[in-house]
Design a protein around this nucleic acid. Structure first.
Lengths: 214, 214
DNA sequence: GGATTGACCGACCGGCCGGTCAGTGTTATT
DNA sequence: AATAACACTGACCGGCCGGTCGGTCAATCC
């Protein structure tokens, strides 16, 4: 019925089909819960053929992860509109970031799974090869805002960036739960509204300012 | 050497030891990666005995999850200091929440794993039985702040609460990665400083206010 | 003191796991 | 036409998986 089986089509190299099938299944269920048999079946090849193209299950998983990373990195490479006002630029970044996560849900889940696993070596690789560049760019935007005097300069840009990313990641990975919390269920699907409110709070704070009318 | 093997001691019922061993291993590696054999070994009982006390691996896992939930729920039940100023009360909540997550790292990882899995039925149970009450209380605190005029009343309290929780969860589950990002590595271990900066940003915003000196 | 009960164990089961291998069909090179 | 290289397969392997079974032992009840 309404299952999410985007059955890997019978086009492309067998290797590509295997990679796509593995990506889908690994993202859905994690490394241990997916068997080579299941991947081979979804890709429409024999199990032995999987081992012909990839030397082991680990190797296949790493290939999937590598592909996901390059795809994820290439994602946020065109968003630069320096002529906007500073606040607008931040808003734009936040919205694009959240949008990218949600649109590439499969890749996002794959990478988040790795982050949560907390394996020290993999964490380092992820930091350096996947998140490093994008995070540094966001921090640079914030530093520019401080230099131009539009942003409080007593705040740690890394902390602000962390908060923005945290809000997006959390939105993505807790939607299934949020949907059942009466106070937030209206936000769980509208990520445009979420991003707007997020930046409103970040920019102006939640405290009522002195001299403001009630 | 410095391994994290808190070898379940030979005290208590066998059932308790099995539960503790299972909790530790499931939190470390997830459901699929842990075998009944490993659990029995760590608990110091035979594999058959595990099935004597729990009808299946799933049943054991659910028991672990149930225990983690009640433990987690009992955690935040004593923090109420209504005589504090509103901002102080919020700060206190945020700090206690983050502290509770970090101190009960094993339980936190267990529950976060379930959240990320996104299983619809389990998500609903988690929302209703684990997060619901605590989240509603935070929202209530925020609503009280709005009623007392100390908080902007054009903001959605659910959104603010989400942001606070998101920041804490993200801190916890991305520490291994953050440690390798030069712009935030100084925050990865000091959750006191993190919580303080978080509430500063939330309360007052990041934008420089008009008329503020440079 | 015999019967019952429940905690507990060693040995075992079918099945699936990741991985191997000998062999087949196709295609390009010579 | 012979050969080499390669994509691909079905049958198979040892090992571990979740789970079962027959039985031991100590405590409890009548």
């Amino acid at each position: 019925m309404g299952k999410t089986e985007s059955l890997i089509p019978q086009v492309g190299d067998a290797a590509e089909r295997i990679l796509a099938a593995a990506a889908q299944l690994f993202a859905q269920s994690g490394f241990d819960a997916v068997s080579i048999n299941a991947i081979a079946e979804l890709a429409g090849v024999s199990k032995a053929n999987v081992f012909h193209h990839f030397s082991s299950k680990d190797d296949l998983y790493l290939a999937v992860l590598r592909a996901a990373c390059t795809q994820s990195c290439a994602q946020l490479d065109q968003l630069e509109s320096a002529q906007d006002s500073f606040a607008e630029r931040l808003r734009h970044y936040a919205s694009a970031h959240l949008d990218s996560i949600v649109r590439n849900a499969e890749i996002s889940r794959l990478i988040l799974r790795e982050v949560q696993e907390g394996n020290p070596q993999r964490s380092k690789e992820l930091a350096e090869q996947v998140f490093g560049a994008n995070f540094a760019r966001l921090v640079a935007i914030l530093r520019a805002g401080q230099a131009r005097g539009e942003l409080r300069d007593d705040l740690d840009p890394g902390m602000i960036a962390t908060l923005m990313i945290a809000a997006d990641i959390f939105f993505f990975q807790s939607r299934a739960v949020s949907r059942h919390l009466p106070d937030v269920k209206h936000l769980a699907d509208d990520h445009g509204a979420y991003s707007t409110m997020l930046m409103d709070i970040l920019l102006h704070g939640i405290a009522k300012k002195q001299g403001e009318k009630t």
